[in-house]
Simulated scan of single mutants.
Amino acid sequence: MALFKIFVDKKGLYHFLLKSDSKHIVFISVGFSTKTNCLKHIQTVKRNSVNDQAYSRLKSNYGNPYFKFRKIRTDETIGISELFLNRSVMERKIQEIKQSAVHAHIDKLTYTI
């Protein structure tokens, strides 16, 4: 079963990650100042993950594809992917998020790194 997990970084910012059904991390968010704000953005990902407009497909300075997941109305960035070897690998990762996020549960614990 897919799962969202919340963690706090060394600067005190809250992030979430999404683990797929196969337990691989498929998405990590940017940092948020509060846990409440982090939870709100998890709900945004759950609602909008199937909407292709939420994914901005980009290329790094070195030509590697990556994507930003963003709020559609405000264009606020919720998370930035890793760099991928090619576009098809990136598209597979986006498909995995689309399949996992909607039904993913939210872990009640908050982890610290």
Rank of each mutant, 00 (worst) to 15 (best):
F69L: 11
D9M: 00
F27K: 12
S56Q: 12
K19I: 01
L3V: 10
M1S: 14
I78C: 01
T44M: 02
I78N: 04
T112M: 04
R73Q: 03
G79S: 09
V26G: 06
D21Q: 12
Y66P: 05
I6T: 15
Y55A: 03
Q53F: 11
F32C: 05
L3Y: 06
S20K: 12
L85D: 15
K71T: 14
D21N: 12
Y55K: 05
K46R: 14
R73N: 08
K40F: 00
R92C: 08
G79F: 11
Y62Q: 07
R92P: 05
I97D: 04
K19T: 04
T36C: 00
C38L: 06
G31V: 07
M1V: 14
G12Q: 09
T77Q: 11
F16T: 05
S100Y: 04
K68C: 13
D107V: 05
S22K: 13
K11E: 13
Q53E: 11
I113R: 11
L58D: 03
K10Y: 05
D21H: 08
T44W: 00
I28Q: 12
S49L: 04
R57F: 11
R87G: 01
R87K: 13
D21F: 12
E76H: 07
T36Y: 05
H41N: 15
S20V: 09
C38K: 08
Y62I: 01
D9R: 01
I72V: 15
L18N: 08
N51D: 13
H105F: 03
R92I: 05
A104V: 10
V45M: 13
P65G: 04
Q43K: 15
S88L: 07
S56F: 15
K5E: 15
T74L: 09
T77G: 02
K19Y: 07
S29R: 08
R92W: 07
K71F: 03
K108A: 14
E82K: 15
K35D: 08
Q43M: 10
N51H: 03
I97H: 09
S33K: 13
F4S: 01
K93W: 11
R70A: 07
K11M: 07
Y62E: 12
G63D: 03
K35H: 05
R70F: 00
N86V: 04
H105I: 07
I94W: 10
